[in-house]
Design a protein around this nucleic acid. Sequence first.
DNA 1: AACAATTATATTGCACACAATAAAATTGCA
DNA 2: TGCAATTTTATTGTGTGCAATATAATTGTT
Lengths: 157, 157
Amino acid sequence: MNPCKEPSKEAVNMAEDDEGLLLDNQVCFALYSAANAIVRAYRPLLIELDLTYLQYLVMMVLWQSNGINVKTLGEKLHLDSGTLTPLLKRLEGKKLVQRRVSQRDERVKELFLTEQGMAVKQKALSIPDAMFCKMNLPAEELMMLKGLCEKVTKTLA
Amino acid sequence: MNPCKEPSKEAVNMAEDDEGLLLDNQVCFALYSAANAIVRAYRPLLIELDLTYLQYLVMMVLWQSNGINVKTLGEKLHLDSGTLTPLLKRLEGKKLVQRRVSQRDERVKELFLTEQGMAVKQKALSIPDAMFCKMNLPAEELMMLKGLCEKVTKTLA
DNA sequence: AACAATTATATTGCACACAATAAAATTGCA
DNA sequence: TGCAATTTTATTGTGTGCAATATAATTGTT
């Protein structure tokens, strides 16, 4: 990471006396709070699929790349096995996913969609639109938001 | 909420066939992932204060508005008592906060900083700068990110 | 005044997020 | 070849986030 320059007085997280400790000046809190709001907003949309938001994300990854292993899944989602293993167990319990020991390395678990898991994709096709409606932001702003969030994630990785 | 118009083909969350189900097209995932990254990034900074990120947020609110009740705290943080009550109990256990029954309404708990809770603020003064350094984004982008996140939270509320 | 409706907080149960640790498997090195 | 080092996933423990529910207190209505 680049050496960190003296923050300018106009920076939103600056510490001028204790202004940096005001909740309303916290970009991090805004982001954190928005993320919670998003997970909440997905909930009613995902009831029909019987998936939580994170399960939905996992399914999306598998629809795109069936057969990947837990490590790769974790890398794509920036999550570790403490989170993924129980979740995958639950998806397996729902008969949407199968975890198989890899033939070339017995430590590795490969994740495969079941027929049922593949079929759920049809029901999921309407979710992105529905969520787009809920957010009610212009596409340009959404793309900007996406880009900035990706920067944050990459920088803090 | 406004009636939702037909999403344009350029929308990032559009469902053109199954493009809407690609992880990389998900602004919501970008936001969710960035929020996780932020909480992770705060962790080492908050060790010295012996606070988690959410506890730090609560303390910030109380440093700003000592004596508020649980409902108001929840409104400011967009969190409910399921989350706050155990957390406040832990802060009380750490002798940073006291929960007192309100005189005018016995259902209401008012939250007061202890001397120790007030003193922690000094140690916290360096956190915003440190986090700003970590994020390594120009202030303009941070402010834009903050504004967009606030829009999301407000819209989805 | 009596009681229904609402409110504030707490509790219960479940899913997630992650640090620390464990166990087994694989890789790297002498 | 043997063993140390590393890797992959799972487990353990703790804290968070929220829906559903509970309990007590307060407000609203008749």
